[in-house]
């Protein structure tokens, strides 16, 4: 029942996004624009590119997801339907889950397209570990989007919310960034062991996935 309601909210968001809001394409092109900026700023040769790649991947994903998170509740804000969504006869956890799944799907799609583009643009021959890199990225995205959707709900109706969202979210994502970059570097052969970093990502995921639905419930209680 909860899962079904959540699934319907997520489906509505994703399909609605394809139809009119096109968050997906803005995220993707924001990411590519960021890559051009990185290339211009660092001008890495092939050896440097392999070393830089893990950091670049995670930084790009972090900033790109801010674009998506700024719009998580946009549909409801436009129609003034946010209160309606909360008053609907479904548990608050379902609303959160639905919003989270919607954002997660969009972010994961962007990551899926972004990774090969990055390998091409930075001339890194790491096609063999591409699935594993995507796996690590997706694992981190689980917890990160849960935290992000919670913060998007938190800053709902705030003045200058996009800036506020970045100010609040980025420092909290430091552990994920450290773990993700180290795990990806291990996959590319420029880092150390991978196991401890995957464990750290899992800790991050478990903490935020268990905290966020509850916190969302407290947030919208009147």
């Amino acid at each position: 029942m909860i899962l079904h309601a959540a699934y319907r909210i997520a489906w509505k968001d994703v399909v609605g996004d394809f139809r009119r809001r096109s968050t997906l394409s803005s995220m993707l092109f924001f990411a590519i624009a960021a890559l051009v900026v990185f290339q211009a700023a660092f001008e890495p040769d092939r050896k440097e590119a392999v070393k830089l790649l893990p950091g670049l991947i995670w930084v790009t994903v972090l900033f790109t997801s801010l674009v998506g998170l700024g719009r998580v509740f946009q549909a409801e804000e436009e129609d003034g339907a946010f209160e309606g969504l909360l008053l609907a006869p479904i548990p608050r956890e379902a609303v959160f889950l639905g919003k989270w799944w919607g954002n997660l799907s969009l972010t994961a799609l962007v990551e899926l397209m972004l990774l090969p583009v990055m390998l091409v643009l930075f001339n890194v021959d790491a096609w063999a570990v591409l699935p594993a890199m995507f796996g690590v990225l997706l694992l981190g995205t689980l917890g990160f989007t849960a935290l992000g959707v919670l913060l998007a709900a938190l800053t709902q109706g705030a003045r200058g919310r996009e800036t506020l969202l970045a100010l609040l979210l980025l420092p909290l994502a430091v552990p994920l960034l450290i773990a993700g970059v180290q795990a990806t570097a291990a996959l590319l052969g420029t880092g150390g062991e991978i196991a401890p970093w995957v464990r750290l990502i899992l800790i991050f995921d478990v903490v935020y996935l268990s905290l966020a639905p509850w916190a969302f419930g407290w947030l919208v209680e009147e």
């Binding site: 935290l147 919670l150 913060l151 938190l154 800053t155 109706g157 705030a158 003045r159 200058g160 919310r161 506020l164 100010l167 609040l168 420092p171 909290l172 905290l211 916190a215 407290w218 947030l219 209680e221 009147e222």
Partner: peptide, 26 residues
Amino acid sequence: VGLMALRSAIDNPVKSAQATAVMVLI
């Protein structure tokens, strides 16, 4: 700093209090 910014960015006092409290917990 983020907590102070969040507090002052939301006009509705109840909403601002709830949002800040949740942010403190996070």
